[in-house]
C-alpha cells in the first residue's frame, strides 16, 4: 500500500485555493492559478490511461490506473507564472480527473502500470511516473483506445489523426484557442459511437516524467486523479528545489 500524506498547505492548496506561494533563495514567489473545464471523460472500462498521446500511447498494454467506470469532469489547472501576474505567461500545473465532490483530506502517489506489472518498491517521495516526450499529457480510457484507434501498422496515427491538415486534427484542436484554450483539447476518438474521448493538455514546462497523484476523502474514497506537472515546486522531490 502506497503511503498516504495529509494534504499539505504549501502544495495541494494550489488545487483548491487557486493560488500558490512559496519562498525561494531570491524571495517569495506567488502564482495565480485558474482551472479550465475540459468537459467530461467517458471511462467506460474504468481503466484510466495517463499518457503522452503523441509518443507513449499505444492500442494495447498502456500503463493505467483503475477507477470506478463513469463519466467524470476533467480540468486543467493553469498557473500564471509571469512576474507581473498579468496572465502573459501561463503553464499547465495539473491535469485532473474529478471522481467525487467530497472534500479531499489526503493524497498519495498512484502507480500507473501496464497489466501484469507489479509496482516496484518505492522510497518515500519516489514515484512511478508518466513519461512525456512530446510536451503533452492526456487521459483516455484503455478499452476505448483498444477498440477505436486504428491499427498503427496499417494506418499512421500521425498522418491520419494528429496532423492530417484538417481543422479537427488533434494538433489543430490542441492549438485552437476557440476550442478549450490553446494547449488543451477534448478529442472524440475515431469512429466513436458513444462519445468515447481523450482529453489532453500541454505538460507545463515541457518533457519529463510526471507523478500521478490520487486525492482521498476522509472515508478513504478516491476523489480525484491528478498528473502533477511540476510547475508548482514540490518539496517532496529532492532535486527540484
Amino acid at each position: 500500500m502506497t503511503q498516504r500524506y495529509p494534504i499539505h498547505p504549501d502544495r495541494w492548496l494550489a488545487l483548491a485555493n487557486r493560488s500558490a506561494s512559496w519562498q525561494t533563495d531570491e524571495g517569495p514567489v506567488s502564482y495565480t492559478l485558474r482551472t479550465v473545464d475540459c468537459g467530461t471523460l467517458w471511462l467506460q472500462s474504468g481503466r484510466l490511461v495517463p499518457c503522452d498521446p503523441f509518443v507513449t500511447l499505444d492500442r494495447h498494454d498502456n500503463i493505467q490506473i483503475a477507477v470506478p467506470p463513469g463519466r467524470y469532469p476533467v480540468t486543467v489547472t493553469v498557473a500564471d507564472v509571469s512576474d507581473e501576474q498579468d496572465g502573459s505567461h501561463e503553464r499547465e500545473a495539473y491535469l485532473s480527473l474529478q471522481l467525487s465532490n467530497a472534500a479531499s483530506v489526503s493524497w498519495s502517489f498512484l502507480a500507473p502500470l501496464a497489466e501484469g506489472e507489479t509496482a516496484p518498491e518505492t522510497e518515500p517521495g519516489e514515484f512511478v511516473g508518466v513519461p512525456v516526450d512530446a510536451g503533452t499529457i492526456a487521459f483516455v480510457d484503455a478499452d476505448a483506445v483498444a477498440r477505436l484507434m486504428p491499427d498503427p501498422a496499417a494506418t499512421s496515427w500521425y498522418e491520419h489523426l494528429f496532423d492530417n491538415g484538417d481543422e479537427d486534427s488533434w494538433f489543430a484542436l490542441m492549438d485552437d484557442p476557440e476550442h478549450l484554450r490553446a494547449g488543451s483539447a477534448n478529442i472524440v476518438l475515431p469512429d466513436a459511437r458513444d462519445g468515447e474521448n481523450l482529453i489532453l493538455a500541454h505538460s507545463g514546462w515541457g518533457d519529463g516524467v510526471y507523478a500521478v497523484v490520487g486525492t482521498y476523502a476522509a472515508d478513504g474514497q478516491l476523489t480525484g486523479v491528478h498528473i502533477d506537472l511540476a510547475v508548482v515546486p514540490v518539496n517532496l522531490l529532492p532535486e527540484w528545489d
Binding site: V132, D207, G208, V209
Partner: peptide, 14 residues
Amino acid sequence: MRKQGLDASSASVI
C-alpha cells in the same frame, strides 16, 4: 529559459 517563456522542464534539467 523559463523567464524567457521557453520550455525548460525539471526532467530536462535532470
